[in-house]
Amino acid sequence: MQTLSSGDSEQASSLHQRILDDIESRILSGEWQPGYRIPFEHELTEQYSCSRMTVNKALTQLAKAGMIERKRRSGSFVSKPQSQAAVLEIHDIRDEVEQLGLPYRYELQKSVSRKSTATDGKKLEIERNTPLIELTCRHYAGKRVFALEERIINLLAVPDAAQTDFSKQSPSPWLVACVPWSNAQHAIRAVAADENVAAILGIPAGAACLVIERQTWNAGQPVTYVRLTYSGDSHALVARFAPNQG
C-alpha cells in the first residue's frame, strides 16, 4: 500500500480546502445559481491537478453542508436554499436571507404617495381617499430575487413615512422600529405566478408561489398592509404550537 509523505498530505489538504473555498464562494456570491451543475469530478481533477479522491472529499463535505446535491450519473448541482419563516412573527427578510448564508440586497422599485381607493380599503380597512404611500420592493439573495414586497402604509397612522427615504432602508424593519403595533393578521396562499411576477422572481409563468399577506393595527387604527411573494420551492412557513390547557 502506498502512503502519502507529510508533504503530499499537506498539499492534498491545501487543495481540498482550495476547492471547498472556490466552490463555496461562487455559490454564496450568486455566480453559481441554484440548479447550476458543478463541473464533473474528472473536470475538477484536471483543473486543480489533484487526485479524484481530493475532489470527492470536497464535494462530499459541501453536500453534507447542504450547499450542493449529488445525483448519481448526473453530477453535482447547487442546492435550492429553503428559508423558513415563523407564521406568527413579523420578521426581517434580511435575516431570512442571511440565515441561508447568502448576501442580501434590497431595491426600491416604486414609491408613490396617493389617496386610497376602494381596493385599498378592502386590504387595510381604511376609508376612501385616506392618504397613503404605496411601495414596491425587491429583496435579493445573491443575484436572485428572493421576495417581492408590495406594501401600502396609512399616512394618518404613520405620517413620518411620507418623509422617509425607503430607497435607503426596507420598510418592514423601519416600521417595526418606529411604529408600535398591537394586532397583526397573516393570510397565506399558494398562487400561480403571472407573467409579471414570474419575470421578477426568475421563474416560469404559472409556477407555484407562496404569498403572505399581512395587516397590522395600532390601538385599532390600521397601520400597513403588505403582500410578500416568494418562489414556492425556496420558502417554507413554520409555527410552534402548545396544547390547549383549558
Rank of each mutant, 00 (worst) to 15 (best):
G101N: 12
L102Q: 05
P103E: 02
E107T: 04
Q109P: 08
S111M: 03
S113A: 11
S113W: 04
R114L: 01
K115R: 13
S116A: 02
S116V: 00
T117I: 13
A118P: 12
A118L: 14
T119G: 15
T119L: 15
G121P: 12
L124M: 05
I126H: 08
E127F: 13
E127G: 15
R128I: 07
N129F: 13
N129T: 14
N129V: 15
P131D: 00
I133V: 08
T136R: 14
T136L: 13
C137E: 13
C137A: 12
C137T: 04
R138N: 13
R138K: 10
H139D: 13
H139L: 12
H139R: 11
G142H: 03
K143C: 09
R144T: 13
V145R: 00
F146D: 07
F146Y: 10
A147M: 14
L148E: 09
R151D: 08
I152C: 02
N154R: 00
L155R: 07
L155Y: 05
V158S: 03
D160F: 08
A161C: 02
Q163L: 07
T164A: 06
T164W: 08
T164I: 04
D165V: 04
D165Q: 06
D165E: 06
F166R: 01
S167Q: 04
K168D: 10
K168P: 06
K168V: 14
Q169D: 08
Q169H: 10
P171N: 00
P171I: 02
S172V: 12
S172C: 11
S172Q: 12
S172R: 13
W174Q: 02
L175E: 03
C178T: 14
P180R: 05
P180W: 07
P180K: 09
N183R: 13
A184D: 01
H186P: 05
R189F: 10
R189M: 11
A190P: 09
V191I: 14
A192V: 09
